[in-house]
Simulated assay, not measured.
Amino acid sequence: MHRYDWLCLKGLAQALRVFNKQEETPQYSLRNISRGSMLKMHVKPETSQIRPYVVSAVLRGITFYEASYNSFIDLQDKLHQNICWQRTLVAIGTHDLDTLEGPFSYEALQPSSISFVPLKQVKNFRADELMEFYKSDLKLKKFLHIIENSLVFPIIYDSKRRQNVKFECTATDLTKAKIVLNTMVTIFSAYCGKKYEVEPVEVIYSNGESFVYPDLSLYNMEVPLSYVNDSIGVALKAEEVL
């Protein structure tokens, strides 16, 4: 079993403190709000052509310091390199919700019809122009192939048709998207005003189906004793395994 929360210093340090009984195991929870009060993410049918899934969540009252913010960015990068398969399966977006206004829409449009000012730039680019611009970017050019030959590009708008949302993962693999979302929000909910609380978001598809994310429910797993011993290199008896 992979522990993706160990990919960043914050997650690894927390796991060690819990293991050494220096702190209690975190009890994560969803903010108690009605479905009608949740932020909405409406998914347009055209997204099925490129990245059909999106999951989303909100962290309220979050306070970052330099070290915790760097860990936050580092975890996104590590997840993109690992479970996200270099962003081919899942792409993570995190943004300042205070500058946005819901409801949100997840769409897939022709590149020539998408335009915005990208991060660290001052010029407005069409999406097709941006692909050319980033071909000289040492960090980003390796990801261009994921969508550059697609007839449509995925994009998220708020109600003012600005292009950010607090936490979202667009994906071709829904299971991995949910794992990535849960990993991000649980680790960094430690910095929220109400510690370990995550605000859910309702995702509504064009066929009428709707889902609430994230799913933080606990579940039991049954594994053979040999799997436990082989995984951590020990020889415990059944009664010694907690």
Score class of each variant (00 low, 15 high):
residue 75 L to M: 05
residue 50 I to D: 03
residue 85 W to S: 11
residue 148 E to T: 08
residue 89 L to R: 07
residue 71 S to D: 15
residue 3 R to E: 15
residue 174 L to A: 09
residue 119 L to Y: 12
residue 239 E to P: 09
residue 83 I to L: 13
residue 227 Y to I: 15
residue 29 S to G: 07
residue 68 S to V: 11
residue 224 P to M: 09
residue 189 S to Y: 04
residue 30 L to I: 03
residue 163 Q to L: 01
residue 106 Y to Q: 00
residue 192 C to I: 00
residue 87 R to I: 02
residue 52 P to M: 02
residue 43 V to K: 03
residue 19 F to H: 05
residue 87 R to M: 04
residue 163 Q to Y: 07
residue 238 A to R: 15
residue 99 T to A: 01
residue 194 K to A: 05
residue 113 S to F: 04
residue 195 K to S: 01
residue 105 S to V: 00
residue 51 R to W: 09
residue 87 R to P: 01
residue 106 Y to G: 00
residue 10 K to W: 05
residue 14 Q to L: 06
residue 185 V to P: 06
residue 52 P to L: 01
residue 66 E to D: 13
residue 207 N to C: 06
residue 210 S to K: 12
residue 171 A to T: 07
residue 64 F to R: 03
residue 92 I to D: 04
residue 207 N to Y: 06
residue 153 F to M: 14
residue 69 Y to R: 10
residue 203 V to W: 07
residue 240 E to C: 06
residue 42 H to N: 12
residue 42 H to Q: 11
residue 110 Q to V: 10
residue 77 D to A: 12
residue 117 V to S: 11
residue 193 G to C: 03
residue 117 V to I: 15
residue 82 N to Y: 10
residue 186 T to Y: 07
residue 157 Y to T: 07
residue 175 T to W: 14
residue 32 N to S: 02
residue 89 L to E: 11
residue 40 K to Q: 10
residue 80 H to R: 09
residue 136 S to V: 03
residue 75 L to T: 05
residue 174 L to V: 06
residue 4 Y to R: 08
residue 190 A to Y: 10
residue 96 D to T: 01
residue 236 L to F: 15
residue 49 Q to E: 06
residue 19 F to Y: 09
residue 62 I to G: 05
residue 89 L to G: 01
residue 226 S to D: 15
residue 4 Y to E: 14
residue 92 I to Y: 12
residue 235 A to H: 15
residue 178 K to S: 07
residue 208 G to T: 05
residue 193 G to M: 05
residue 38 M to S: 07
residue 152 V to T: 13
residue 126 R to H: 14
residue 52 P to F: 01
residue 122 V to F: 11
residue 64 F to C: 05
residue 163 Q to E: 06
residue 166 K to L: 07
residue 96 D to K: 04
residue 126 R to I: 04
